[in-house]
Write a protein that binds this DNA or RNA. Structure first.
Length: 228
DNA sequence: GTCCAGGGCCTAC
DNA sequence: GTAGGCCATGGA
């Protein structure tokens, strides 16, 4: 892994931002919707998550207590378009129970918890792994935790900047320990935009087939391995 | 028909 | 500790 004090993350960010502009994530109407979406998007394209979210909203039960109160088979049916719906119904219920019991279903109450403490609590919930926890922390709680997803591993690994097999926290530290681009002072804003830009790039170059020629980072692909 | 998507859990070594 | 299977729909 390249020295974490390197300038590559900031350089990549600036190229991506110039290529794709502000993404203004997360695509949701409320922090609660962000939390639900973070669970539903596990190993699933966002388009399918949107279908499931629309069904949940149409049910009239789109609240913490409302969703907890749904029979499991009804919840499964609403989640069907997002795939793995039985698994996700259990995971969503487990998360909402945690949210209700620990924070009274209050986003504000949850937000008052420190990021480190909250992250460890989130990881203790069945079905919430590091990526889902960080999505909730960053996009629902406005806490500065960089999200590492499959695109991040694939793209930055393909560039030779990180070991794609590295564990989650090491990859996260690589981004979090690096300086921000000049002019940016808020890490929440920076990480928010960065992950969204990586997903936008990933959608373009990682599916259906890898195509490095279309990669917005091509300009620094050639020099990346020697940069510091 | 086949492959894979903005993961995480469980089981077998 | 880690590799592999499993969940499951919908689009390319």
């Amino acid at each position: 892994m390249i020295d974490p004090r390197n300038s590559l993350p900031a350089a990549a960010y600036e190229l991506l931002f110039r290529a794709y502009g502000s993404q203004e994530w997360w695509p949701a109407d409320s922090p609660f919707e962000v939390m639900v979406g973070a669970i539903l998007t596990q190993h699933t394209s966002w388009e399918n998550v949107e279908r499931a979210l629309a069904r949940l909203k149409a049910s009239g039960s789109f609240s913490c207590r409302g969703l907890i109160g749904l029979p499991l088979d009804a919840l499964e049916e609403y989640l069907r378009p997002s795939g793995a719906y039985r698994v996700k119904a259990r995971r969503l219920t487990a998360y909402l129970m945690f949210f209700q019991e620990t924070y009274g279903g209050s986003v504000d109450s949850m937000r008052r918890t420190s990021g480190t403490d909250l992250r460890s609590k989130l990881l203790s919930v069945s079905g919430i792994g590091p990526e889902t926890a960080d999505c909730i922390l960053l996009y629902a709680m406005d806490k500065p935790w960089f999200v590492i997803d499959a695109y991040t591993r694939r793209i930055f690994g393909r560039l030779g900047w990180v070991d794609p097999q590295a564990n989650y926290e090491d990859l996260q530290a690589w981004f979090q320990n690096a300086p921000m681009p000049g002019g940016l002072t808020d890490r929440v804003v920076y990480y928010n935009e960065y992950h969204a830009l990586v997903v936008e790039l990933g959608k373009r170059v990682c599916r259906p087939k890898p195509d490095c020629a279309a990669c917005a980072l091509n300009a620094i692909c050639a020099t990346g391995k020697t940069a510091s």
